[in-house]
């Protein structure tokens, strides 16, 4: 009974980080219809920025916002200088689909190569800012530590801020309108190009938060080849697709569902099946509900 409870707790915590990554992927998808495979690379790069700030200041609470800003800046930079010109130049519709995939995959490689060049074999570390020792209640150890509580709080704060931004602010309305119908939005006076860059920036921030938390929650070690970031890329993507790719709520549900599922595989089956099982749940969801858990069938209109 205790094991079951703990499995779910672990699943929710790690799932909440996947949710952030999924949100990052969904935001880019919604604003430009691009699956950004470089998202994990951006998360990695901004986590390194976070690491640098952490070594200099010693404060996780300065490092985290700086990493978020760095993630937002890099993501906006990539959209503006790299993807936009590429999409403008792409000719037919099949190019429009394949070019960004190849481009962002290439970008992932480039970012990793640059980081490897800068850091070599030297790893960064982001150690938990608060204790990661499990709480003990009576004779039982509960899989919830101050660090896990902190992760959940940070994720909840970020997700609610993003939701608030989308639902309650002018820029949120512009972001939603531009993703549903760029043409009508332009006719209404929305600077759709600028709004798309904003969408990428918010996505970059969400992704870098995922990167920072994932590192602090995991081994704490940060390297261009670390397992944490391969996991983040795969799980973020799977969570986004399970959630239907279109909504923030879907991304959150997708992340938590995936987290709990993975946690069960880890605790009850085998740690070596984690990757396979992520793809298994992806296939299962796509088979039963191709539009994702709460996705609706929508195409892109003019």
């Amino acid at each position: 009974m205790m094991k079951l409870f703990n499995t779910i707790l672990i699943g929710i915590t790690s799932g909440s980080i996947y949710s952030l990554m999924a949100i990052a992927i969904v935001l880019v998808w919604r604003s430009t219809r691009v699956i950004n495979f470089a998202q994990a690379g951006l998360a990695l790069a901004s986590s390194f920025v976070g690491f640098e700030v952490l070594t200099r200041t010693g404060s996780f609470w300065i490092a985290l916002p700086v990493a978020l800003l760095a993630g937002a800046g890099m993501s906006a930079f990539i959209e503006y200088f790299f993807l936009r010109p590429l999409l403008k130049r792409s000719g037919d519709e099949s190019q429009e689909i394949f070019l960004p995939i190849i481009a962002t995959l290439g970008l992932l490689g480039v970012i990793k190569a640059i980081l490897s060049f800068i850091y070599g074999d030297q790893n960064g570390t982001i150690s938990p800012p608060v204790s990661d020792k499990d709480f003990i209640v009576g004779a039982n150890s509960i899989s919830m530590s101050p660090m896990r509580v902190l992760i959940l709080i940070v994720v909840i704060v970020l997700v609610s801020s993003i939701t608030w931004l989308f639902q309650k602010t002018s820029i949120g309305l512009a972001l939603r309108a531009s993703s549903y119908s760029p043409e009508i939005s332009r006719l209404a006076g929305v600077r759709v190009d600028l709004i798309r860059t904003c969408g990428w920036a918010i996505s970059g921030a969400a992704g870098s938060a995922a990167g920072m938390l994932q590192t602090a929650n995991g081994s704490g070690s940060l390297s261009p080849d670390s397992l944490e970031f391969s996991l983040l890329l795969v799980f973020g993507f799977v969570a986004a697709v399970i959630g239907g790719l279109e909504s923030l709520l879907g991304a959150v549900l997708g992340g938590i569902t995936l987290g709990i599922f993975i946690s069960f595989v880890l605790m009850y089956v085998s740690g070596s099946l984690v990757f396979i099982s992520a793809f298994l749940i992806l296939l299962l969801v796509l088979y039963v509900r191709p539009q994702g858990i709460i996705g609706k069938k929508v195409g892109r209109r003019a």
């Binding site: 309305l173 512009a174 939603r176 309108a177 549903y180 939005s185 006719l187 209404a188 600077r191």
Partner: peptide
């Protein structure tokens, strides 16, 4: 201001949001 062919509204947004969209700028 141009009202394009077909009903030039964004179906996923509410009536109020469609109106507000025109005045965001």
């Amino acid at each position: 201001s141009h009202v394009s062919e077909g009903k030039s509204v964004i179906p996923e947004l509410s009536v109020a949001e469609n109106l507000d969209l025109g005045a965001l700028w």
